[in-house]
Design a protein around this nucleic acid. Sequence first.
RNA 1: GGUCGGAUGGCCGAGUGGCUAGGCUCAGCUCUGCAAAAGCUGCUACAGCGGUUCGAAUCCGCUUCCGACCUCCA
Length: 496
Amino acid sequence: MPSELKIYNTLSREKEVFKPLNAPFVGLYACGPTVYNEVHLGNLRTFTTFDVVYRYLTHLGYKVRYVRNITDAGHLTDDGDGGDSKIEERAKLEQLEPMEIVQKYTTSFHEVCDIFNLLPPSIEPTATGHIVEQIEMVKRILAKGYAYEINGSVYFDVKKYMETHPYGQLSGRNVDDLLEVTRELSGTSDKKNSYDFALWIKTPDNALQKWPSPWGEGCPGWHLECSAMSGKYLGHQFDIHGGGMDLKFPHHECEIAQGVGADGVVPVRYWMHANMLTVNGEKMSKSKGNSFLPKELFAGEHKLLEKAYAPMAVKFFMMQSHYRSTLDFSNEALQAAEKGYAKLINAYTNLQSLVYSTAAQKNEAEDKEINDLCEQIYDKMNDDFNTAEVTAVLFEMSKKINSFKEGHIAIGSISETTFKRLKATFTAFIKDILAIDKADAQDDNTADGLMDLILSLRKDARDKKDFATSDKIRDALLQLSIQVKDGKEGTTWSKN
RNA sequence: GGUCGGAUGGCCGAGUGGCUAGGCUCAGCUCUGCAAAAGCUGCUACAGCGGUUCGAAUCCGCUUCCGACCUCCA
């Protein structure tokens, strides 16, 4: 009896059974990076979370359209007039065109995604490529009376909107509180109320990125692109919208208001938010100076890092926690994950080499246990993508697999159907869903041939009880991160 | 200040009103020429104080501590 997929919806603060609007089609939108510099590991956690969501929904048979944007239009502060955007700042710093900055860091982002074995989205729209759509959306909001224009900028009229619609539900905020605390920003304050937000912002004359609009030259407000692009590719209402916890307010709250304001429809059915990666209990962020880049992690070159860590081990580290919990980074935790990961992959490798054989007495209890594990793992995943529990089941399965390999349990004691189910389930979760199998499995025939030769020489030495030679080979290989494993049916090896 | 979330064994990290999470570490055993790998066994925790209950780490209240958002942020 397979369980139903449940998703924790930030909007209702409850786990809800997932029912797509138009099954088997699913619309999934995740907020992508602003490409003014490189993504750090914390950013990557969110993208990894939604990669798993995308992969799992696909695995379940849904036809998923996964849209993840690239924010390549820098955004000024809400009040406009505030000088340069992040991208412009960077462009001036590096003495490059804004679009060179955008290109550079988009490419770098893609490389990191690739290394982390994240699938490319179905559509990866850019903000600058959808200026027209954004302007059209502003027009619709203006036409409905939920926005006003002042001095070449257009602002969303939150107070007006609240007369007929709730605002602040997603983030649990009420506007009175916002009013009290909102800081007086220096410079102009064209907005009627401090909690209004910009849809279109007049840019300074020297701005590098600006576009013509009915209200003069300017750039789109920073919440607008996601609304315009999700609406274009997924429809005015779609299934799942994801992003980091820190985007809940104001970004996602504003998206809801824009969607309703422009098209009269609540845009998103299920809101998902990934929690932060922390360092010593504090959010990893560039401004705190506690962030590091994926490539620094893989090279071990950062003051916070004791050593280099393999990408898939890091990904597994993330999978061991739930996406809605904060995950605290530490060398100790990462090294523990590294070892656990190696164990899991070892079992995965063993599984591929197992061959079913009926020559054994059937053991109903064993058979049931394995079938239960195969069912449990889906139950766990269906429970709001609980990858932490999933990894626990994978370890249980690993024990079984290794026991088959070692002959501690006769493989024929379970039915062939059960064996095939185990193999298919384990493989699917490692390879297709969590996607933590070694991506660098480029078949290196030379290496395999060399290893066969070396191990056969070592076997000769061992047969002659020339352990000095055999141990010399073993130790030298270990220096190359190649581990030799002497088993009952000969020697195998693996490279870390 | 406002809103929200969290405090779990040596470390990381799930979870449920009563039943072993899992990983790492540590100890012992099996296997092994010796190791490693693998298997088995052991190590029983839920911030504090009250309350509800036959029973709470899990529900409620209070206290302490930590974090996130309220400004760009995944």
